[in-house]
Amino acid sequence: MAEPTVPVLEVQDLSIAYGPVRAVDRVSFAVGRGETVGMVGESGSGKSTAVLGALRLLPAPGRIVGGTARLEGHDLLALDAPALRERWGARVALVPQGALSSLNPLLRVGDHFAETFAAHGVRPSEGGRERAASLLAKVGLDPRHLDSWPHALSGGMRQRVAIALGLALDPPLLVLDEPTTALDVVVEREILLQLVQLQREAGFAMVFVTHDLALLLELATRVAVLYAGRLVEEAPAAVLAAGGARHPYTRGLLAALPPAPGEARLPVSIPGVAANVADPPPGCRYHPRCPLAEPRCSVEAPATRGTTHRVACHLVEGA
């Protein structure tokens, strides 16, 4: 069990390349016990790549070209395949984006749990089925669905199964990659409420990857904002929700959100098109769209400054 002071996951200066393209460039973030860190960005920002890469779950041709990722103090980037397999599922679990494609269509729901338990040396005699049934109940599913086939479940039910599978071995870290993007709002909300409840009971850390900043303002402890492969800002969600965003891109994203009922504000789009990581603009990658850009922004990449509130911008300070 990790000490509260040691982060469950600590990623430093992680860089990931697809061939010559650097999709993630020196990204750092950390998540502690009971915390939820939200990774947000638009398509192509590298948010999923950074998180999957840190856990060594990124398929080829994605390749880690720099940085460190420590899970409970162990350097994941130095582990060999057997040591990784021991940790995957037991110390960190992934809930992937498409729950239909993450479940094997030829296996009943219960068989998925049996496979997970068997891979980690839990023998069937040790009550795997009872444990699987109680996991389904925890995510709000009737335990009789242990005998259901994945195709017979709705999208929301499949995503609940994926979350229950993720929690099967009680990992200290749960990573969720756009887990509710494909779901209806009511189902999404039901699942998020359940997830927050489970986290409160079990105390696991979460990394939540999404394009939905409004959702993170409610769900996350801290929010990391990525743009074109780089971290532009990382701050407590409460600070961002209270209007404390400092980076012009984060401010732009917040201004683009539709107003809540009763909020007298018209959303404003960010002009231009998201930078392409295959051919990024020089200097600060956001400068072509930035309303505050100065000459040096197009020449010099800004350093990330601050500790509790980190910002990578020439024009604003971190904290």
């Binding site: 709000g140 709705s154 709002v185 009511v186 189902v187 999404e188 909300r189 039901e190 998020l192 409420l193 927050v196 409004a214 959702l215 303002l217 409610e218 769900l219 929700a241 959100l257 809540a260 009922p261």
Partner: peptide, 23 residues
């Protein structure tokens, strides 16, 4: 009302939804 409550943002994930799950 259930739909609006599920879409509401910026009020935390504290309040339960006013309606039972179902399809």
């Amino acid at each position: 009302r259930l739909l609006a409550a599920a879409s509401r943002r910026h009020d935390g994930l504290a309040a339960p939804l006013p309606g039972r799950p179902g399809t």
